[in-house]
């Protein structure tokens, strides 16, 4: 499989010093790749660079075949990325309105996504009337409604309770299975990474590099019943060992 994201010798420095001096990795097309690493290792920054909102200082990255509007980004801070003056429906419809898609088609697309993910909202109410978990699901729907071929996700489950966390993991898998999207997700939760990803990239401390690239062969779909299995525990232990090595613990 050719790489959908290819990062080569990337350099980025902030005021606090060098974040990456030579970061290279690839993410396979139609696979879920998780980035796991210590705090401050530039996990979120790499997503910001790839999405074009933060410039890089050197090196290069490529996302071959990615068309305009082909990228979806799910922010960690869902509360701050929803628009409270728009209803739940209008929030999910926003990326389609930006593309000037007719109202009827917007309705149809949102209906289709509701079926796929098995989630529904009181569409005429406002995001601030929803719980944190529901708000994050709304952000999820807003990112998926455009049917992106590439999905960048920044710690999407960090603010959720365990039940909502598991539910969203299943939604992400359902979308991935239906659209074959390339997913690059950042997480600080090893269980999430092992549960969802085909491949786990472990970042080292600053200046960060990929210290380990771990393939995760567990079969999909991985439901919540996959969590207590021996295969899952083994993969998680391997990833933890690799992380401890990377973080010099």
């Amino acid at each position: 499989m050719p790489a959908a994201i290819s990062v080569k010798n990337l350099r980025k420095a902030f005021d606090g010093g060098e974040l990456y001096d030579n970061l290279s990795f690839e993410a396979e097309r139609s696979a879920i790749t998780a980035i796991f690493g210590p705090n401050g290792s530039g996990k979120s920054t790499i997503l910001n660079i790839l999405s074009g909102i933060v410039p890089h200082d050197g090196g290069s990255y490529e996302m071959p075949g990615l068309e305009r509007f082909g990228l979806g980004y799910i922010f960690q801070n869902y509360r701050e990325s929803l628009l409270p003056w728009r209803t739940n429906f209008e929030n999910v419809a926003l990326p389609l309105e930006i593309r000037k898609i007719p109202k009827r088609e917007i309705r149809a697309r949102i209906g289709k996504l509701e079926c796929l993910l098995g989630m529904s909202f009181e569409w005429n109410r406002y995001p601030y009337e929803l719980s944190g978990g529901q708000q994050q699901m709304l952000v999820f729907m807003r990112a998926l409604v455009t049917e992106p071929k590439m999905l960048l996700i920044d710690e999407p489950f960090s603010a959720l309770d365990y039940e909502n966390n598991l539910r969203l993991r299943e939604c992400l898998q359902a979308y991935h299975a239906a659209y074959g999207a390339t997913v690059l997700m950042v997480t600080h939760n090893i269980e999430e990474a092992v549960h969802l990803a085909d491949r786990i990239l472990i970042f080292s401390k600053k200046p960060s590099a990929v210290s380990e690239s771990m393939e995760n062969m567990l079969p999909y779909p991985r439901s919540r019943n996959s969590l207590p299995t021996d295969g899952f525990h083994k993969a998680k232990d391997e990833a933890l060992l690799a992380f401890q090595k990377a973080a010099n613990l």
Binding site: I53, F69, Y73, F75, E80, S81, L94, I98
Partner: peptide
Amino acid sequence: SRILAARIMGAKRHQIFRWI
């Protein structure tokens, strides 16, 4: 964060102005 979200969605300057 809201402006960035709209930018990533592909919103143009006038759309960001009008909607955000």
